[in-house]
Nucleic acid binder design. Structure first.
Lengths: 343, 343
DNA sequence: CAAGTCTCGGAGAGCGGTTTCCAGCGCGTG
DNA sequence: CACGCGCTGGAAACCGCTCTCCGAGACTTG
């Protein structure tokens, strides 16, 4: 098996110069139609495919973007963390949105996990080497140092969610407070008077804002205090939180969970304790992920358009690549309430 | 913002030649320790990072592998398909295993979806251009043309699961029949006498073998006929299948589902119909995915070591890259029975 | 002590593309 | 008809790195 054909080979077969072949392939400049045809024929007979490394070397584009999932490994087993990450339907939606936006541009996402200090260094090092054109960063942790590390290394970066402390990078985010307010008002409208909430981790802005928004909306309607138990967006934590809340507030009649995974787990716990959902207790989730429709009853939830948001990340990143000097942009999405069976 | 420093810059600062710097960085050959230190210092002061495109051009290695998910888009909405794919915990485990094996080698997976004929062409085209060093292919469809297309294009390829028709590519697989047998024998040992099965799509070898294995094991114990309903590995299909089986065989006392997602859905349906799991009906799943432990009751299931299998795919691919002429290898894994609550 | 061997740094030839620059040609215009 | 311009193809520089080949010096050895 000899080496694959190069531009040179095609040029020789077509009887033209390398430059001309290049121009035909890239449609860079006008080329005589008959020559074009000759070249194309030569490409076909040789089975030529441009070498992307060589191309990248001169164009300074790889056609790849790093999709970096950064989270709190906290010294844990790495594989356990990875398993947890990828079992959350949220990331699947991010991947979906990213691929959808990248594909028409002939680009691909390169998956990178940064769950430990060492992994973070690796990710930055690789990205600095130009293995990808930029980074899309999804942090599951509040005080993630990665955004700074990346921008500091000169890697074009776009974040999912506004970082805890300002970073010179674009981002997309959701109006979490508005979403939580929608949930609160829906529960109130259903006649719910003793709501509780299972909030997300409070070191994550999204977790905090969903809690705040819910509390404030309730407060505006005279419910000054809403019992709250903290979860970490996993089903197991939702189960625990619900169990505790139910023990401490046996007469609760509404639950707002900061994501669907926890909401679904909460509904299970309620049912196991003989509460009917939604007749006895109304449950509202957050995200509108696949967990919402997989749950029984199907979850009423606050929709976060993750796919669209991920697509927008791609657009922001590509824009940043176009004009490196432009200041980073951000886009905030508005949530919707999706009413199903659970509330 | 000027261009990043090159090897040349480092060499100038260190007062040595480009070759020497390269050698120090790659540890390729003995270099005088004092010179090494000088070079390293120069690397630090310049903030040098090797350009991976340039490196790839000469080494003919990119450090990336394509992780191709190929499935039956059948003209469906592409995004819907992507969503479905990524909501299945199975793929998360594949990604987990792949990343785990790739990381120590400083490599990364490039995610590529091939759900339509057009997408398949694109994937092959990109891979032919050397965007990645090879492909790890996970097909969800029996008659997938992609394996042939890839090997035909000279792309080093390793498959997850043996292809329906032979292809000159390595693969990893599971002894599905043995797994199904374990499930059957466990159900029998529990005293189950009227088992049914929710099988996977029969155009997928895995689906067929799990069904065969279950049926044969039951037959060996005198149960010649096992009612079966076909699902497609999704929760929704599992629900439908269970509903039908329950209607046609109200006295069933055991269910074997070809994956956990369907098993979990089946358990739900059973419970909604007033059957206790496992007291009235025992349920056994397949995979031991996160769905198994998330279910209530937790699922007894046949463990498929997906992470290990994915890791082995990486190893097979790298071996194939080392010695391109060697015949493709395959590795078959053995399943285990994991006993939890549902059976 | 001479000759051979070993070690290690430098020069330079690629790797396979893109793109600038230049030259030739056909055309329109004054 | 002479001139200039636009269009198109080719030559060659260049992207940044690796690696072979070569030569100089150090070291061994008879």
């Amino acid at each position: 098996m000899s080496r694959p054909p190069t531009l040179e080979d095609v040029a020789r077969v077509a009887g033209v110069s390398r430059a001309t072949v290049s121009r035909v392939i890239n449609g860079t400049r006008n080329v005589d139609p008959s020559i074009q045809e000759t070249v194309r024929a030569a490409v076909r007979t040789t089975g030529y495919a441009p070498n992307s490394a060589a191309r990248s070397l001169v164009t300074r584009r790889t056609g790849a973007v790093g999709l970096v999932i950064s989270g709190a490994g906290e010294g844990d087993d790495e594989s356990a963390y990875r398993r947890h990450v990828f079992s959350d339907p949220f990331f699947g939606r991010v991947v979906d949105g990213v691929i959808g936006a990248l594909r028409p541009r002939g680009m691909h996402p390169m998956l990178m996990l940064a769950e430990s200090a060492e992994a973070r260094e690796q990710v930055v090092a690789h990205l600095r080497q130009g293995i990808a054109d930029g980074a899309l960063l999804v942090s599951t942790h509040g005080e993630d140092p990665l955004p700074r590390m990346l921008t500091g290394a000169g890697v074009p970066t776009v974040l999912f969610a506004r970082p805890a402390r300002p970073v010179p990078a674009g981002y997309v985010d959701l109006a979490h407070r508005d979403g939580a307010r929608l949930a609160a008002e829906h529960l109130l409208a259903r006649g719910c008077r003793r709501p509780v909430t299972i909030c997300g981790p409070l070191d994550v802005l999204a977790g905090q804002e969903r809690l705040d928004g819910f509390g404030q909306a309730m407060a505006r309607h005279g419910l000054a205090y809403v019992p709250c138990a903290e979860g970490n967006f996993t089903a197991a934590s939702g189960e625990q939180a619900m169990t505790r809340l139910l023990r401490e507030h046996p007469d609760l009649d509404g639950v707002f969970a900061a994501n669907d995974l926890m909401a679904r787990a909460a509904a299970h716990v309620l049912q196991e304790h003989g509460k009917r959902v939604p007749q006895d207790v109304a449950v509202v989730g957050f995200d509108d992920s696949s967990a919402a429709t997989a749950a029984r009853p199907e979850l009423t939830t606050v929709r976060q358009p993750v796919e669209d948001m991920a697509g927008e990340m791609v657009r922001l990143l590509l824009a940043a690549l176009e004009s490196p000097e432009a200041p980073p942009k951000s886009v905030i999405f508005e949530p919707d309430l999706v009413i199903r069976e659970s509330a």
